[in-house]
Amino acid sequence: MTLPGFPNAMPLEGFIGGLLIGLAAALLLLGSGRIAGISGIAARALDLNKSSLPLLAAWLFLGGLLIGALFVNAFVAPIQSDFPSSVALLVIGGIIVGFGTRLGSGCTSGHGVCGMSRLSPRSLVATCTFIVSGMITVALANAAGWSW
């Protein structure tokens, strides 16, 4: 299925994948009573934040991410993954993402999915901020002619 005007978009796959992500977050919320915030869980796994989440549970969640990706790659559809060729972009982007998600207490999963759906004012502000900031960054990088 394609979207008129956007030949590269995958609205159906996106929506179905989104439902699964919502289901994943719902399972953690209703089962364990926790927010599925991946930056927080990753920091917890390495003992880099304060959290009551058991260390083993953090590692099992992250292991699950890999298992889910492996399963889809093997049995559903090969995962397309086009990375920037610049190592500098990966390193600088990674450091900023790591620092920023800790400072802002969340990323696309915690604020964007769990917080937005809870109508949390903090998450609404954070999500709008990182989307706008991301859009400005891409526009500036393109204007500057940075190869990606």
């Binding site: 996106g14 364990s32 889809v72 086009d82």
Partner: peptide
């Protein structure tokens, strides 16, 4: 529950094309 939730999450990200940085 963490393992099941992480697996569903990973599958969702993979199916939706979100593991493609260019997308």
């Amino acid at each position: 529950i963490s393992l099941a939730s992480g697996s569903l999450f990973g599958a969702g990200l993979a199916i939706s094309g979100m593991m493609d940085p260019s997308r």
